[in-house]
Amino acid sequence: MRFPLVMSLAALTLAGCASTPNSPSYTLSSSKTASDYAHCVLPKWQKEASGTTLSETQGHYKIVASSKVAADDIMEIYKASPGSKIFVYHRVPLSSTFGRNTLETAARDCL
């Protein structure tokens, strides 16, 4: 009886860690290629969050700014015609309530 309850709670906990919001915090477009845009944003995000990483697949870049006190911020950059399409997910709902977020500023600076 106790084992199924523990397993259910563990599964729910892990599912919560893997979930992403359905809609981005904001969407941007750039005339730069996805590669050029990603390599422009990466050092700016690394300056703000030292644990920032870049992963790349064909036509898609993902930048993750890890945080020790909040959920990760994620940027996904896709090839578009022309340029690129950018989706940013801020995991802290109040992150931009008190003025422009520094990660958002960096994202807009590279457009």
Rank of each mutant, 00 (worst) to 15 (best):
A11E: 01
T13D: 02
T13W: 11
T13I: 13
L14F: 15
C17M: 09
S19Y: 09
S23L: 11
S23E: 12
P24Q: 06
T27E: 15
S29R: 08
S29K: 05
S29T: 15
S35I: 01
Y37H: 09
Y37N: 03
A38F: 11
H39I: 03
H39S: 07
C40M: 07
C40F: 06
L42I: 13
P43N: 05
K47M: 05
K47D: 12
T52N: 04
T53W: 05
L54R: 10
T57G: 02
G59C: 04
K62A: 11
K62R: 15
A65L: 04
V69P: 00
D73M: 10
D73F: 09
D73R: 02
I74L: 13
M75D: 06
E76Y: 06
E76C: 03
K79D: 15
A80F: 09
P82Q: 04
G83P: 06
S84L: 09
F87H: 06
Y89F: 14
H90W: 02
R91H: 12
P93D: 13
S96E: 13
S96K: 14
F98V: 15
R100C: 01
N101F: 02
N101D: 15
T105C: 00
A107I: 07
C110R: 00
C110N: 02
L111K: 06
L111Y: 10
L111G: 07
